[in-house]
Design a protein around this nucleic acid. Structure first.
Lengths: 132, 132
DNA sequence: TCTTGACCCTGTAGCGACTACAGGGTGCAG
DNA sequence: CTGCACCCTGTAGTCGCTACAGGGTCAAGA
């Protein structure tokens, strides 16, 4: 299989070109070899690594956590307790955000459900933002 | 009632001093009069406005939307349809985020529930991040 | 009266994770 | 040989703060 250009890699992974370059700068992806014309030339190993990063991002992991996950994934013999801990931290963070957003949703729905006025003067939404 | 210092206002609203100055720079709060020593001197009107901003932020409204809400709140005769639209947009945004986070949570929980291995080589979590 | 310390001021830089240029070089098809 | 799509680097902007640095102000206590 021939080497992939950054654009090819972007199409295959769904990660924008600019973001791939950004991940390289941030040390999440190794610097690939270059062609004669100074274009990045990727192999399937790079594609696998980028796919790993993308799946981790889709689960909401931060770039620091992903760096740690990549390091752990590279050492097959290491205990996976650290992986577990990172995933549990991430789950806790996601649950915290869901709780916050659920409270916001409830309040917004309640506001909207009570809005019967025509003008701002009697508007329930504005009234509540003012603090009743 | 005497004028409030920025620190007093921060304590009364729970909005940090730096954030109050930031809101002023962003045009969400009017520039207050100053004391002889160039300290900001706030009145209860300022406190009400800041409380409005804080409640809006707590519901997840962006600063642009809050500027719009403040403008609308200042004109009592205006129809509240625009307010309604802003609130509905915000509710839609919150619901989108909840949906994303709920999917993340499900996947993280499932990963963690299947992790029985001792080493990274057999770790279900790493395996899934690699793409099965 | 002096000094300590808490508070205030402006201006600027940093955060996370991108995204969007500007200003150029490369490579291939017609 | 001329377009045009793609690639390169480097820098600046996004959002909503947050954290300084380097000063000024003010009131209480010794």
């Amino acid at each position: 299989m021939p080497a992939l250009s950054i654009g090819d890699l972007a199409r295959r992974t769904g990660v924008p070109v600019e973001t791939i370059r950004y991940y390289e700068r941030m040390g999440l992806l190794p610097k690939p070899p270059r062609t004669e014309g100074n274009y990045r030339a990727y192999e399937t190993g790079h594609e696998r690594r980028l796919a790993f990063v993308k799946r981790s991002r889709d689960l909401g992991f931060g770039l620091d956590a992903i760096r740690a996950l990549l390091d752990l994934a590279d050492g097959a013999d290491r205990p996976c307790g650290e992986v577990d801990a990172l995933a549990r931290d991430q789950l806790a963070e996601v649950e915290r955000k869901i709780a916050d957003l659920t409270a916001m949703r409830a309040e917004l729905q309640d506001m909207l459900g009570h809005c019967r006025a025509d003008t701002v003067a009697d508007c329930e939404i504005i009234g509540r933002l003012r603090g009743k």
